[in-house]
Write a protein that binds this DNA or RNA. Structure first.
Length: 306
DNA sequence: TAGGCCATCTGGTCCT
DNA sequence: AGGACCAGATGGCCTA
């Protein structure tokens, strides 16, 4: 199973990771080049005058009924040089009205497009670590975290073993803002004890999901979720010093079956940090443990939990 | 109050 | 011609 998965998935992930690493390395250079190219294109393609296609569209549609009124807007400019490009027409009331309708339709389409984009982004939020309905990652942070997450998964597949939590957190948080770093690190640090000590129920040292996106690699099954000591209200604070809202999913849902995070229909449960031992939760409020975590992880735990 | 994030509008460009 | 995509501008909301 493991070897089959590796043989099937590893090449793709490796290629993806390599591409991303390359992109990351060259990001600045590329951006500069693109900007430069864009400027060059603009310089080359820029019409002599600002008669764009949109303007010409605006000016030249609805031929039939306005044919009689057609005349050049600037033909009598006298000593001024003649402008190139399509000749403008007078904006009659009908034309203005049609233009407004067209603009409204374009606005509606643009709204729909952005809603679709946001919907896709929301689906992406659900498959990266630390999904929360109540405190959403920003768009840019979601994209960054998703990229890091894929890179981390690729790294795990490449090495064939589970890295330590510090490395994992560092991989995930690379390039993220401080608040998001706190959030992610906080989520994952809470799971440190499970991570370090509790193997998967099947005995494997490192549980490989059937799909790279079907489970977070550090979200292990937890048999103690049903413990009477489990207190969902206690524990983690977010970066704003508030208790984590319901829905943070840094942990693997109990029950043995993993949710299909990749499904757009998947809706993360609202329970918070389900998979933590009571001791783990209590440890969060224990300054000594926090200091220990700080030493272990290298993260500023004060920032993480305050 | 400044800064971050977001939704929306808008005009430009490209594609079918 | 019309739609998709993009980026800039703008204003609202929220938080530190």
């Amino acid at each position: 199973m493991l070897s089959r998965l590796f043989s099937e998935v590893l090449p793709d992930v490796q290629r993806l990771a390599a591409d991303w690493a390359e992109d990351t390395e060259n990001e600045d250079c590329k951006n500069k080049d693109e900007d430069h190219d864009h400027l060059d294109e603009d310089d080359l393609d820029e019409p002599l005058e600002g008669s764009s296609r949109a303007e010409s569209e605006m000016a030249c549609d609805d031929d039939e009924d306005d044919e009689a009124e057609e005349e050049e807007c600037d033909e009598n400019s006298g000593d001024k040089p003649k402008k190139r490009g399509p000749k403008k027409r007078k904006m009659t009331a009908a034309r203005v009205e049609r233009s407004k309708v067209r603009r409204m339709k374009a606005n509606a389409r643009e709204r729909t497009r952005m809603h679709d984009l946001n919907s896709a982004l929301e689906n992406l939020r659900k498959v990266v670590p630390c999904y929360s309905k109540t405190q959403k990652l920003s768009k840019i942070e979601t994209l960054r975290l998703a990229k890091n997450y894929i890179m981390a998964l690729g790294e795990i597949l490449r090495n064939g073993k589970r890295p330590d939590v510090v490395t994992y957190v560092q991989m995930l948080c690379k390039g993220l803002s401080q608040p998001t770093t706190n959030l992610v690190a906080g989520c994952l640090q809470l799971n440190t004890r499970n991570f370090l000590t509790e193997p998967c129920s099947d005995g494997a040292r490192f549980h490989v999901p059937s799909s790279p996106f079907s489970v977070h690699p550090y979200s292990y099954r937890c048999s103690r979720i049903s413990s009477p000591h489990y207190q969902p209200g206690s524990g983690a604070l977010n970066v704003r010093g508030q208790s984590y809202g319901s829905g943070y999913e840094a942990a693997y849902p109990p029950g043995g079956t993993s949710p299909d995070y990749s499904s757009p229909d998947y809706e993360a449960p609202k329970s918070r940090l389900k998979c933590y031992h009571r001791e783990s939760l209590a440890a969060v409020s224990d300054n000594k443990i926090i200091q220990k975590n700080k030493m272990e992880t290298g993260f500023n735990v004060k920032n993480v939990f305050s």
